[in-house]
Nucleic acid binder design. Structure first.
Length: 797
RNA sequence: GCCGCGGUGGCGGAAUGGUAUACGCGCACGACUUAAAAUCGUGUCCUGCACAAGGAUGUGGGUUCGAGUCCCACCCGCGGCACCA
């Protein structure tokens, strides 16, 4: 019996599987075959490569002339992924398909669309992942690159695959280092001491995101702050411009607010407090300071100032009181009263002047401090005064680009003692000249930090010991690598000239394509990537290398994709790999479901149950083809109107990135078309073009199949993406009748079909003539009638 | 604590101050089928026998002829920032 079961059961399942498969073939379109066919065709015909020739009239003799058949350049950019694990997850896809759908829409509208892709592979995420799985980062990167690109092919986006960039390849980071050169030459790169997070157990520097509530992410040891010399870029010089330009760029409002708050401009006053004369002659000999300057936005509260507080790093901090005492005192310039000076950590060294005036009556934190130290709280009213001078301060800090890690571009600087002593180089630091770039990231087996506090590159003597480019003497290389945000702040430029080893990007070419017309990405990048990119673009603009200060004309943030109401994360075990769904339902279904499940700006909730709806929809569209007739006949006016309404709605929704409602409108049209016995080919063609940005593979296939039949479509049979986006006829949408909403006391009681431009008295008569509606009014004393033309009538009793 | 975004059926989600719940999922019933799956059709916010009448957009107020939408206060969820004087 047991043996019998063993024999029969696999066969039984095989038979079942076969039958099921057969039915699938009969009732479903073959997405695997269709999608593979079109992916290959798109790539073979290089159909998505834009015209990157130089602007007309300015190209050299041997450059090919501008192809006039292509449209206006449209740079459609999406945030390139960082391959931190083996493969892309559905959250990455979420952003990419929306962006691609928009790009395809623009292509159909006749633009010459440039839509590139690449990998942001340098950085701590990738490095940590490699360390975690115990494999060398280079090996891991090679593997993830292959897999990421495979997945990105599968989703069917219209990428220009001839211009991919990977930030961790020498031909890319050579130019990241070049950017450092430019910054340094312009006086925007400098070195200073700054604190880093240090884990004493792992003996390594940690990034802020690796410190979870004061503890090391990996070993849970309490982290400490360690002062180290680091490289900075002077983004603060551009604070005002970064702020001011927010008014002219078309970006998601929330992101602009985020940047504004991050820049944190506040206008106030610098007030000088003289130290008490006795103090100066005494213990403050080692400081030249005769006074303390504070920054305040409330100079009118000066009368209530009863003490000063210095940050612990302040020059005079050592002399001030740690507890109530009178080591050092100052004079309040408003009332000449002597007030104590304290030191406390609640005052930040790098904001304002590193010193504040304590006004416990008006400031919550000052009051807490005063109460703790039993200080006087003076309840006096604010009073306008002219003490101090106006000043503007920003929260924005300079950008620390140093990373004491391995997986990044080495900062192209050399330290030369000889040049330092002769004063021929600023503090001994010498730039690696452009001709010697790239400074290659050396191969190393063990790229874990060595515990010295310096980066892992410090372990390689051959790398560190070098010749000074200036004097030729012995010198030492910088062993820090740069922040991955440096890689990503300029990648959109490199796409345009991805394989040029003579220069980072072509000036004329960027002139043709920049600024980026549409940039879609996550709002988690509100303040870092998006601010750094703007800053660097401003610098390049001043150098005359790019055509505009702002890199991204239009930016739209998308929301977070969650699953079953929860954030998608490994620990929750709810990670979705797009591959399985693409295998089962096809890329078109996955694309469309991602766009259908919610508003892009708000994010969405992926439910496995929901994807079937979109799958059914695409199959219905496929089957509709059998209703297409080659005969000419008059379609119903209702359907004709719906077609025009759909064109209008889908066009407007796509322009406003409302993909979800655009799809629902397509569903409405398809549902109506299904009810027809026959469809005009020209109408079905319109539906296919409208569908194309969402489900490109299926649209191409249907377009081709239509072309094999006779006539009707005026356009030649070719890629559907070479067709024109349909236009709607406003006259066909115009209604001559409408449903008059009837309200009694604001409550909906019914509606009457009426012709447009109906007058109020006419409308009242119609309501009274309606038995059902009139009964609501009988016995009521009507005080007032609100009449909104072509919309509603409201009787107020 | 501050800033931003949100809270609508069983679920994902629609709604220029004017018919709340489009579209989709699920569910129920029906058609096709020996049967199931697939597909198609009908119905589906709640209370009610009702095509009678009410009640529902986080809570409480307000403005308005009329509020999911505008204003005020509060509660909850998500994301970001942490003493920025």
């Amino acid at each position: 019996m047991v043996i019998f079961k063993k024999i029969i059961s696999p066969n039984y399942f095989l038979i079942k599987k076969f039958c099921f498969g057969l039915i699938l073939v009969m009732t479903k379109y073959n997405h695997k075959k269709i999608e593979k066919k079109w992916r290959e065709k798109w790539e073979k015909d290089k159909i998505y490569q834009p015209d990157l020739s130089l602007p007309a009239g300015r190209q050299g003799k041997d450059k090919k002339p501008l192809d006039k058949t292509r449209g206006k350049p449209f740079y459609n950019l999406m945030m390139f992924p960082y391959p931190s694990a083996e493969g892309l997850h559905i959250g990455n896809m979420y952003a990419f398909v929306h962006s691609d759908c928009y790009g395809r829409f623009k292509r159909l509208q006749g633009f010459d669309v440039f839509e590139p892709i690449g990998l942001d592979g340098f950085g701590i995420h990738s490095e940590n992942y490699a360390i975690k799985i115990g494999e060398h980062i280079k090996k891991v990167s090679a593997r993830t690159e292959k897999n990421f690109y495979k997945q990105l092919h599968m989703i069917g986006n219209q990428y220009d695959w001839s211009r991919t960039v990977e930030t961790y390849k020498p031909d890319y980071y050579k130019w990241t280092q070049w950017l450092f050169l430019k910054m340094y030459e312009k006086g925007l790169a400098y070195r200073k001491e700054a604190s880093v997070n240090w884990c004493g157990c792992c003996k390594t520097v940690l990034s802020d995101e690796q410190v979870i509530s004061g503890k090391c992410e990996r070993c849970e040891t309490e982290t400490e702050k360690k002062l180290m010399e680091q490289w900075f870029w002077k983004i603060t010089d551009y604070a005002e411009k970064l702020l001011a330009n927010l008014k002219v760029i078309d970006w998601s409002e929330e992101v602009k607010i985020g940047q504004k708050n991050w820049i944190g401009k506040s206008e106030g006053v610098l007030i000088t407090f003289n130290l008490k004369p006795a103090c100066r002659t005494g213990r403050s000999q080692n400081s030249n300071l005769k006074n303390i300057e504070v920054f305040t936005t409330r100079p009118d509260t000066l009368p209530g100032c009863t003490f000063l507080v210095l940050s612990p790093e302040h020059e005079l901090a050592g002399l001030a009181c740690r507890q109530a005492g009178k080591n050092l005192t100052a004079i309040n310039p408003f009332n000449n009263k002597e007030i104590p000076i304290f030191t406390d950590e609640y005052v930040l060294y790098d904001y304002g002047t590193g010193a504040i005036m304590g006004v416990p009556a008006y400031d919550e934190r000052d009051r807490v401090f005063a109460e703790k130290n039993n200080l006087q709280i003076l309840e006096v009213g604010p009073e306008e005064n002219k003490i101090g001078k106006k000043a503007v301060k920003y929260k924005l800090r300079d950008w620390c680009i140093s990373r004491q890690r391995y997986w990044g571009p080495p900062i192209p600087m050399v330290y030369c003692e000889k040049c330092a002593s002769t004063g021929s180089a600023q503090a001994g630091w010498v730039l690696v000249p452009e001709k010697d770039l790239p400074v290659l990231l050396p191969e190393m087996e063990d790229f874990l930090p060595d515990g010295s506090g310096k980066g892992p590159l410090n372990k390689i003597r051959e790398f560190v010991n070098t010749k000074c480019p200036k004097c030729g003497g012995p010198a030492k290389r910088e062993t820090d690598v740069s922040d991955p945000f440096v890689d990503s702040c300029w990648y959109y430029l490199r796409y345009l000239d991805a394989h040029n080893d003579k220069k980072p990007f072509d000036k004329l070419r960027v002139k043709k394509w920049l600024p980026v017309d549409m940039y879609i990405g996550g709002k988690e990048h509100t303040v870092l990537h998006l601010l750094y990119s703007r800053f660097v673009s401003m610098v390049l603009y001043e150098l005359g290398l790019v055509p505009s200060e702002e890199p991204f004309e239009k930016f739209r943030a998308h929301g977070l994709l969650i699953r079953d109401g929860a954030k998608i994360s490994k620990s929750k075990g709810n990670i979705i790999s797009p591959d399985d769904y693409i295998e089962k339902f096809g890329a078109d279904t996955v694309r469309m479901y991602l766009m259908f499940l919610g508003d892009m700006r708000q994010g969405g909730d992926w439910r496995d149950e929901g994807i079937i709806g979109v799958y059914r929809f695409l199959n219905r569209i496929y089957k509709l083809q059998s209703k297409v007739s080659n005969l000419k006949f008059q379609i119903s006016p209702e359907l004709e109107k719906l077609i025009h309404q759909t064109i209008k709605k889908v066009t407007e929704d796509l322009e406003n990135l409302k993909f979800n409602t655009a799809i629902s409108q397509l569903m409405i049209l398809a549902n109506e078309m299904e009810k027809e016995k026959e469809l005009l080919k020209i109408d079905y063609c319109k539906l296919i073009i409208l569908l194309a940005p969402f489900a490109p593979h299926l649209a191409e296939e249907l377009w081709e199949q239509l072309g094999n039949k006779e006539s009707a479509c005026s356009e030649p049979v070719e890629s559907v993406f070479k067709q024109k986006w349909p236009k709607y006829d406003p006259a066909k949408i115009k209604e001559d009748s409408f449903e008059l909403i009837v309200q009694i006391n604001g409550k909906f009681r019914g509606s009457i079909s009426a012709s447009k431009n109906l007058g109020q008295s006419e409308a009242e008569k119609m309501v009274l003539a309606d038995e059902k509606l009139a009964k609501y009014l009988s016995g009521q004393k009507i005080k007032k009638v609100i009449f909104v033309k072509d919309k509603l009538i409201n009787f107020v009793a």
